Amino acid sequence: MKQNRIYFILVGIMLLWGFNVPLLKIIVSTFSPVTITSLRIFTASLCVFIILAFLKLLRLPTLKETVLIVGCGLLNVVAHHYFLSVGLSMTSSTNGGLILGLGPVLVAILSIIFLNKRLTVIRMTGFVLGLAGVSFTVLAGGGGLSTINAGDLSIFFSILTQAFSFIIINKACKMDPRLLTGYMLLFGSAVLFIIGLATEKDGLASLGNGNLKVWTAFVLSAVFATAIGHMTYNYAISQVGAAESAIFMNLNTMFALAGSVLILNETVYPSHLIGLALIVSGVILGSGAYEELRRKYRRKHHYNSAG
């Protein structure tokens, strides 16, 4: 029963994250992308610290933890959200959501390179399918080669830098992931704000462009998708394991596609659906989810047969 509750929570988080993509599209299309992103991340960090204080988990980091916070913060928050905000200001929410769906495959590839994970034929097949899905999305997404733009590439860099940060965290982090999340968000928001001041002349002035709809999107994105979503995901994933998590990440991609249609009235082309199918297949095979679930089934079957 407890596991079913965790699964329900994971579906809810994927719904939040999926619909967060079109919300971000609204936000970065109204305000200066980097400046508003820094404020959104700062708001999320405050929410995380309030929750941490309530859970009695709040403490100052050690020197070694501070180095980890800075390193991962630059990748997971600064680079990831910078490329994401800039990318979504130049490409469609549909394309962005599909490209972000490649995350688990990129983590698996980097795990093989840096963490000595085993490369199998099934995983290699998944990598090829995932990359083919993203390539199909950006090459054929409604206008052939003309649809390739800097926005699509920026979205890809955003998920690539985040994948690198996950590898570092996996290899070096001994800190509570919820506490690490709060400090990374706080540090990253400060760096992004400085970048915004340096690169966006009218960054702060653009905040006057918002209306009730846009600021509602801002609050939903910052509080629910970024703060509560990431903290809850860290807990849920520790309960069900990596294999199941990769399966649920596919819902994120599908919800992003649905949100782009429902919220932004974007058009989903047949090429997007083909790209979605390839990416979902790639995540299931390339992340190791299929192999792990198959091993669990065999162990369970063997146990039942022996009993």
Score class of each variant (00 low, 15 high):
N4R: 11
F8L: 12
I13Y: 07
M14W: 13
W17P: 00
G18M: 03
F19R: 05
P22N: 13
L24W: 11
S32P: 09
V34I: 13
V34D: 07
S38I: 01
R40L: 02
I41T: 08
F42C: 02
V48I: 11
K56Q: 03
V70Q: 01
C72K: 03
C72W: 02
L74Q: 00
N76M: 12
H81T: 10
S85A: 15
L88C: 08
L88G: 08
S89H: 02
S92H: 05
I99L: 06
G101C: 04
G103Y: 11
V105S: 08
L106Q: 08
L115A: 10
K117L: 05
K117F: 12
L119R: 04
R123Y: 05
A132K: 10
G133I: 06
T147Q: 12
I148F: 09
L153F: 05
S154F: 02
F157Q: 13
Q162P: 10
F164R: 03
I168D: 08
K171D: 11
A172D: 15
K174A: 08
R178M: 06
R178H: 08
M184I: 01
L186W: 03
F187T: 05
G196R: 08
L197S: 11
D202Y: 15
G208W: 09
N211D: 12
F218L: 04
V219H: 03
H230S: 07
M231C: 09
V240Q: 09
G241P: 03
L257S: 02
G259D: 00
V261C: 05
L262T: 06
L262E: 09
H272L: 04
G275F: 00
G282E: 01
G288Q: 04
L293T: 13
R298T: 14
R299Q: 15
K300T: 14
